[in-house]
Each structure stands twice: as C-alpha cells, then as structure tokens.
C-alpha cells in the first residue's frame, strides 16, 4: 500500500464501523500522539549547529480485535510514525512502526509482524526521555531494535507478578555477520522475563543475533513514593561475530511537584573495538508540565560526550522545548 493511501484506508476502516453496527462487538480504536519540539542543536560528531523542529516519533495507530469465540480473539495493530515538522519520515509521509496481527486468549498472546524486540521494550519504563533527540537511550545502548518478520509470544501473568516473552526472527535468506545465509526459523531470538508489582518493576532480557548483536539487559524501576521514581538499566553485549563488545548502564529518576515532573538521566557506554575503546557519556535533565491529562509541555537539555581512546572528544548537545498531545 502506498503511504499516501493510509488516510484513505483509515477513513474506510473507520467508516465501516459506523456503517455496520452488527460488527459492534469487534472493537477498533484510533490512537496516537503528536509531539513537536523546537530544538537548539549543537553537534560536534556531525558538525551541525542550528535550530530545528522535530516530531519526536509522533504517531497514529489503529488497533482492534475480532472475537473468534468466548476464549479466543484475533488482534491487530497498525501504527505509523508521522513527521509533523516537515512531512518527511525517512522519505515517506508515514513510517511503519509496530504493526502486527495475532491471536489472544487466556494462554497469552502470539503476534507476528514488525515489532520492537522484548529486549528493547523492557527498558522503556527507565528511559524517561524516550523518543527525544539525544535523550533517548538508543543513542547510548545497543539493543534498541524494531525487527521485521518477528514472531512474539507473550505469556499472561503467572505467579501473580511475573510475565515472559519469547520472540524469534527468521532470517529470510539474509546474510549473517559471518557471511553465511540465514534461512532458519529462529536465526535471531529475543527473550524477556519481567516482574511487576506496585513498587517494583524488574526485567531481564537476552538477544541472540538480533541486528548482529548478542546481549543481555537488566532493567528495574522503583516507585519510591507517590512522587518519586528511580530506575536503572545495565547491559552487556557483543557483536555476534565477536569483534566488538559493549557494556553500558543508565540511571534515571523523576520527582513530581504538583503539575511539574522533574526528570534526570545519566548513562555511560563503552565500546571495545579491540585496539581502541570509545566511551559515551549521556546526561539529560528536563521537566514536564502537565497542562491536563492529554497535554503536556516540556523542556530538556541533553549532552552526549564521545571520548575516543585516541584523545579525541566530541560533545553533542540539544536544548529543547516541546508540546505533546495524546489522543
């Protein structure tokens, strides 16, 4: 489907709900958010010093389910990134985000399509500047992957507070890091186990051959009070062919004062290329102001220092003010 036809498709789909009340038990929901910021960017790694508008992964999605019987339903989700600032999402009007179709029952959920890996998703509660330029942990850590052709099974809660997810990715004849052809069912895998109660969220995940990396990630987030939260991520990984290793960690926290949420995040990552090492240090501070339940204004400053062992240092920084509207 051409991206430019997306609006038409959504319109037709939504219209169908109105036109056929008999399908009322099959729910469909349009959701998304618009997040636009004005950024003052100063990069040394990619010499750039300018003001810009950024869409920060603004998106529109359609989700729904169709009942098959009392215990089983088919589910789907189609979510697209929208470039509010210039209409250009990597050359298209809409860029595919998480999209899947699957089945859901009391035994859990199985989906197939294009989706974030379990390893990426366990870190999201700790990433307090998710989707923001330089502030997102993807600028520091490997493992932030959205994979095509992925199949995920996610369990229901067990032992009261636990859940697990297992994903596999057929290579579909792609070349792996050793130059061999990936043609198996599970050329790459990503698995996660998580625990959650009112005070503690904790999860561990492992990737094998996902985007060429093998890594293990540990994430935890703690609700310290009704105003304060703090969390961390630690991970260790290497390229599947063993040439490069990476170790990294993130600490983050937030404190709420009435309608203002103060946030801070610090992270460090070391790439070991064998002959040399490169350290990345990320510092981000910011504040959200909740205008109402759906709208917030925010500001943040983020800096990433790249320190290469050859005594070369780069500083990249962003200062930003933005507005986010959820719907």
């Amino acid at each position: 489907m051409k991206p430019s036809n997306l609006a038409l498709a959504i319109a037709a789909l939504s219209g169908a709900v109105l036109a056929t009340p008999a399908l009322a038990e099959n729910d469909i929901t349009i959701y998304g958010k618009a997040n636009l910021s004005l950024n003052q960017v100063d990069y040394e790694t990619d010499p750039e010093d300018q003001w810009n508008l950024t869409s920060n992964a603004s998106r529109i999605g359609v989700k729904g389910s169709v009942a098959i019987n009392d215990e089983l339903k088919a589910i789907y989700k189609m979510e697209y990134e929208v470039a509010i600032d210039d209409g250009d999402s990597d050359g298209d009007e809409f860029k595919q985000r998480n999209i899947y179709v699957g089945l859901q029952g009391t035994w859990g959920t199985v989906i197939g399509g294009k989706h974030d890996t379990p390893t990426k998703l366990i870190g999201k509660p700790v990433d307090r500047f998710n989707d923001l330029e330089l502030g997102d942990i993807k600028n520091l850590l490997e493992g932030e992957n959205r994979e095509s052709n992925i199949v995920i099974y996610s369990s229901p809660k067990f032992a009261e507070n636990f859940s697990a997810s297992v994903a596999f990715i057929p290579g579909e004849d792609s070349d792996d890091s050793d130059g061999e052809t990936n043609d198996g069912l599970a050329d790459a895998t990503s698995i996660a186990l998580s625990f959650k109660n009112e005070q503690v969220y904790a999860a561990i995940a492992n990737d094998s051959e996902v985007d060429g990396w093998d890594l293990t990630r540990l994430a935890a987030d703690f609700t310290l009070s009704d105003k304060a939260k703090a969390g961390f991520i630690f991970q260790d990984g290497e390229l599947s062919d063993g040439d490069v290793e990476q170790t990294g960690y993130i600490f983050s926290g937030q404190y709420t004062i009435d309608k203002i949420v103060l946030k801070a995040q610090y992270g460090m990552s070391t790439y070991d290329f064998g002959a040399i090492e490169t350290d990345l240090t990320q510092i981000t501070i910011g504040a959200d102001y909740k205008i109402n339940k759906a709208v917030k204004a925010y500001t943040y400053y983020s800096n990433i220092e790249t320190d290469i062992e050859t005594d070369t240092t780069y500083d990249d920084s962003v200062f930003s003010v933005g507005l986010e509207v959820k719907f």
Binding site: T29, Y31, G61, S65, I75, Q104, P156, F327
Partner: peptide, 23 residues
C-alpha cells in the same frame, strides 16, 4: 472512538498485549 481510548498510546510500546487490547 477517541472517547473510549484512554490514551492507548501509553500502552502501545509494551509487551503487555493483553492490557493494550483490553477496552
């Protein structure tokens, strides 16, 4: 439809598919 969607976008990037697809 929006009136029923209590910010599904907050649940969208999650492994909790059950919560995301609950009304």
């Amino acid at each position: 439809i929006n009136a029923q969607a209590d910010f599904d976008v907050d649940d969208a990037d999650s492994l909790d598919f059950s919560s995301f697809h609950s009304s």
